[in-house]
Design a protein around this nucleic acid. Structure first.
Length: 263
DNA sequence: AAGTGACCCAACCGCCCCTCA
DNA sequence: GTGAGGGGCGGTTGGGTCACT
C-alpha cells in the first residue's frame, strides 16, 4: 500500500515501503553524491521521496556495513549497559555497536523492555497481594475484587534505570570519544581505507562499469557539481572502494533483497 | 486449520540542533 | 546576529511473521 502525498509542488511524495527499483536508484545516487546531501539526492534521483526518507532507508537498510539478524547475547549486554548509562540515547548507543542502527536498537529495547515491564507488574502485583493479605485480610479482599489503587506509585525499576542513565556526568561522557556514524561505517568496511579518508569524501562511488551492469536507473554521466569536485574525478574509484560496493549491489540484486513489505 | 497474541521491524512524524547565507 | 533549511534523533505506529492454543 503505497501512499502518495501531494507536495507543495506539482509532483507527489511517495511514502511507505520501498521497492527494489527505488533501492537501486538510491544506492546509485548515494554512490554518486555521498551519504550527506539527502535533500539533493531526493530531488535529483527522481524518487519522489523526502530527503529524510532517503536518509532513513540508506542508514537503516541499504548501508553495506549493516549487520543482519538478531542481536547476539554480547550485543544485548552492551545495549543494557549503555542504556543504563545514557538512557534513550539510541544513536549514541548505536555508535558503540558497529553494524547496528539506532532504530534497530530502539526496536530491540522496546520489545525487550515491554517484556520486562510486564514481568515487573506481575511481580509487583503478587508481592503486593501477599503483603496485603498478611497485613490485612479485608484489604486483600478488595484487591482481589479489582481495587488496585494501592499498587500505583511504585517506582518501576525500568524507569529508574533510564533516569540513572541521564545522570552520567559530562566528564564521563567526554571520556567516551564518539565517532560519527560515517567513521564507524568506514572502519567496518575497510579499516585501511579509513586512514586516508576524509569526512567529505564520497563513501561509495559508482563507476562507469557498475553504472552499466548494475545501475540501469543511474543517470547518464553528468557534469559533477562544483561542490563535490576535488582534484580527483568523482568517477574514479580505487580497488578498495570497488570491492566495498560490490557486496552491497549483490545483496540488493539477489533474492535476499527485502523490499518494504507490500501491505 | 483457524484464531490470537507476542515479537519483530520498516517507516513516518515532529522536534531540535547545526550550518550557512 | 539571525532566520531558513537541512539533517539528526527519539518517539511512535502499523503491518508481517511466528508460535501457541
Amino acid at each position: 500500500m503505497m501512499k502518495m502525498v501531494q507536495s507543495a509542488g506539482d509532483h507527489q511524495i511517495r511514502k511507505g515501503p520501498w521497492t527494489e527499483q527505488e533501492d537501486l536508484q538510491l544506492v546509485c545516487y548515494v554512490g554518486l553524491f555521498g551519504g550527506r546531501r539527502w535533500d539533493f539526492i531526493a530531488k535529483v534521483s527522481g524518487l519522489n521521496r523526502t530527503g529524510k526518507s532517503c536518509r532513513f532507508r540508506w542508514v537503516n537498510y541499504l548501508h553495506p556495513g549493516l549487520k543482519r539478524g538478531r542481536m547476539t547475547p554480547q550485543e544485548e549486554r552492551v545495549v543494557l549497559q549503555l542504556h543504563s548509562r545514557w538512557g534513550n540515547r539510541w544513536s549514541k548507543i548505536a555508535r558503540k555497536l558497529p553494524g547496528r542502527t539506532d532504530n534497530e536498537i530502539k526496536n530491540y529495547w522496546r520489545t525487550h523492555m515491554r517484556k520486562e515491564v510486564q514481568e515487573m507488574r506481575k511481580r509487583d502485583t503478587m508481592i503486593s497481594m501477599i503483603t496485603t493479605m498478611v497485613e490485612s485480610p479485608t484489604k486483600s479482599q478488595n484487591i482481589m475484587e479489582g481495587d488496585s489503587s494501592n499498587l500505583n506509585g511504585k517506582g518501576s525499576c525500568v524507569t529508574d534505570f533510564a533516569v540513572r542513565g541521564d545522570d552520567v556526568s559530562e566528564e564521563e561522557e567526554e571520556e567516551e570519544e564518539d565517532y560519527s556514524m560515517d567513521q564507524i561505517w568506514k572502519e567496518i568496511a575497510s579499516p585501511e581505507e579509513h586512514v586516508n579518508s576524509t569526512t567529505s569524501q564520497v563513501f561509495y562511488r559508482g563507476t562507469k562499469e557498475e553504472a552499466t551492469c548494475s545501475f540501469s536507473s543511474c543517470p547518464p554521466l553528468m557534469a559533477s557539481p562544483l561542490w563535490e569536485l576535488g582534484s580527483e574525478s568523482l568517477w574514479t574509484m580505487d580497488e578498495g572502494e570497488t570491492n566495498m560496493l560490490a557486496p552491497m549491489v549483490s545483496v540488493i540484486s539477489t533474492n535476499e533483497h527485502k523490499p518494504g513489505r507490500v501491505m
